[in-house]
Amino acid sequence: MNTPTRLAIFALGLTVAFGAAWGVGTAMSPVLDEPVASHDMGASETSHGEAAHLPGGLVVSQDGYALALEETTFRPGTRPLAFTITGPDGHPVTDYDVEHEKQLHLIAVRRDGSGFQHVHPVLDADGTWRIELDLVPGAWRVFADFTPAGGEGLTLGADVTVPGRMTTTRPAPTTIAEVEGGYTVTLTGDLAAGSSSDLTVSVERDGVPVTDLEPYLGAFGHLVALRAGDLAYLHVHPEDSDPGPDVPFVAEVPSAGDFHLYFDFQHDGVVRTAEFFVTASSSAEGEHGDDH
């Protein structure tokens, strides 16, 4: 073997060894010290025709409306988030329709599905929305769900970075959640891509069905669904129901795969959240399962 060949093999060996060591180190104790690359598909304007084929929350701008965060990097802790929704005229929107008792719903979640927060910012007279979020190190996504006055409902999303040492694990599939206060919350029903799926969330406390759920945002519960990976924000519609123990929903899932589901409910004056992690089948698989 000649000298150049031996040197090339030696260099390749060093490269492989270094790459393997780096991969192990980041998997065991990853540190995020720079903003993540943006996942916003709408860095430039996304038209209604283009966005019609996308689930909500994947773009930062659509139909002339854009989500603009004042800051995108935060230290860990409870931090103030400020943002505007600019309209087709380039100015902050100050007039919104009320949906589910609020003008705007803000969802914040880390990209691994943890840290879910469903909050309602306060709107300043100049069109700036303000709210505090509890943030731990990691890459986050925030979603603004709103309807401009007289317009169509939109969900826009943007990335947020919280530098620091991260701890993360892949969630285990689950349709049963234990919630602080002695609550057991169970999800029944199957998600199938390409069709409407009937889901029911049932609430018990200390083994007794809860039949006195309190209205929260105009319903006895709200369900948010995010697709694992890109965190696409999906359509989930609450159905009319009694105040427990069962709360029905209809979900529209555009693809097969894993999904994070978050169920907000109010009882004894406190809003609580149950989290689920489920897999949606393809529509063909769902039909095949029905035949058996």
Results as ranks from 00 to 15, higher is better:
Met1Arg: 04
Thr5Asp: 04
Leu7Gln: 07
Thr15Phe: 12
Val16Lys: 02
Val16Met: 07
Ala17Asp: 00
Phe18Ala: 09
Gly19Ile: 05
Ala20Val: 12
Ala21Cys: 03
Gly23Ser: 13
Val24Asp: 05
Thr26Cys: 05
Leu32Ile: 11
Leu32Gly: 00
Asp33Lys: 03
Met41Ile: 11
Ala43Met: 14
His48Gln: 10
His48Gly: 08
His53Asn: 12
Pro55Trp: 06
Gly56Thr: 06
Val59Pro: 00
Val60Ser: 14
Val60Ile: 14
Asp63Thr: 10
Asp63Ala: 15
Asp63Ser: 15
Tyr65Ala: 07
Leu67Arg: 03
Ala68Lys: 06
Leu69Tyr: 03
Thr72Lys: 03
Thr73Val: 15
Phe74His: 04
Phe74Thr: 02
Leu81Tyr: 01
Thr86Tyr: 15
Gly87His: 14
Pro88Asp: 07
Asp95His: 15
Glu99Ile: 12
Gln103Ser: 13
His105Phe: 05
Val109Met: 06
Val109Gly: 00
Arg110Ile: 06
Ser114Gln: 09
His118Glu: 03
Val119Leu: 15
His120Met: 13
Val122Met: 10
Thr128Leu: 03
Thr128Trp: 00
Arg130Val: 07
Arg130Ser: 12
Glu132His: 08
Leu133Trp: 00
Ala139Lys: 01
Arg141Thr: 00
Thr155Ser: 13
Thr155Gly: 08
Val160Cys: 07
Val160Met: 09
Pro163Ile: 06
Gly164Asp: 14
Gly164Val: 09
Gly164His: 02
Arg170Ser: 05
Ala172Leu: 11
Thr175Leu: 02
Glu180Ile: 14
Glu180Tyr: 11
Gly181Lys: 10
Gly181Ile: 13
Tyr183Gln: 08
Tyr183Asp: 01
Tyr183Gly: 02
Thr186Glu: 00
Leu191Arg: 01
Ala192Ile: 11
Ala193Cys: 09
Gly194Arg: 03
Gly194Asp: 03
Leu199His: 01
Leu199Asn: 01
Leu199Ala: 05
Thr200Arg: 13
Val201Gln: 00
Arg205Thr: 09
Asp206Val: 12
Pro209Arg: 12
Thr211Asn: 09
Asp212Thr: 15
Asp212Trp: 06
Tyr216Ile: 04
Leu217Cys: 04
Leu223Ser: 05
Leu223His: 02
Arg227Trp: 07
Ala228Thr: 07
Asp230Gly: 06
Ala232Gly: 14
Val236His: 07
Pro238Gln: 07
Ser241Arg: 00
Asp242Ile: 01
Asp242Ser: 07
Pro245Ile: 04
Val250Glu: 03
Val253Gly: 01
Ser255Asp: 07
Ala256Arg: 08
Ala256Asn: 04
Asp258Lys: 11
His260Val: 02
Tyr262Gly: 04
Gln266Cys: 06
Asp268Gly: 06
Arg272Pro: 02
Ala274Glu: 03
Phe276Gly: 00
Ser281Glu: 12
Ser282Asn: 05
Ser282Thr: 15
Ser283Thr: 07
Ser283Gln: 11
Glu285Ser: 14
Glu285Gln: 15
Glu285Leu: 13
Asp290Val: 11
